[in-house]
């Protein structure tokens, strides 16, 4: 068990004005941390903050916020 989960430190922000619900992010996520509902839904427990989805998004609708 890791001491903390990556998902506790980051947050995936989906810009719904930009998102075209194409499912691209879902299909490249290596951890199944995204599921396409109307917009992609993010599972913080599965995310490893690799940002593959962020780079892949054809319109740049995803941001991983770190705090």
């Amino acid at each position: 068990m890791p001491f903390f989960k990556v998902g506790d430190l980051v947050k995936l922000i989906v810009d719904k004005n930009k998102c075209l619900s194409c499912g691209g992010c879902v299909s490249v996520c290596p951890k199944q941390a995204l599921e396409l509902k109307k917009y992609p839904e993010w599972d913080k427990d599965k995310c490893i903050s690799c940002e593959v989805c962020v780079k892949f998004c054809p319109v740049g609708a995803l941001k991983l916020k770190r705090d």
């Binding site: 691209g24 490249v28 996520c29 290596p30």
Partner: peptide, 13 residues
Amino acid sequence: PLINNPVLMDSGF
């Protein structure tokens, strides 16, 4: 098994 390699996927627009 998933393809978790973005190099094998094109991003289309």
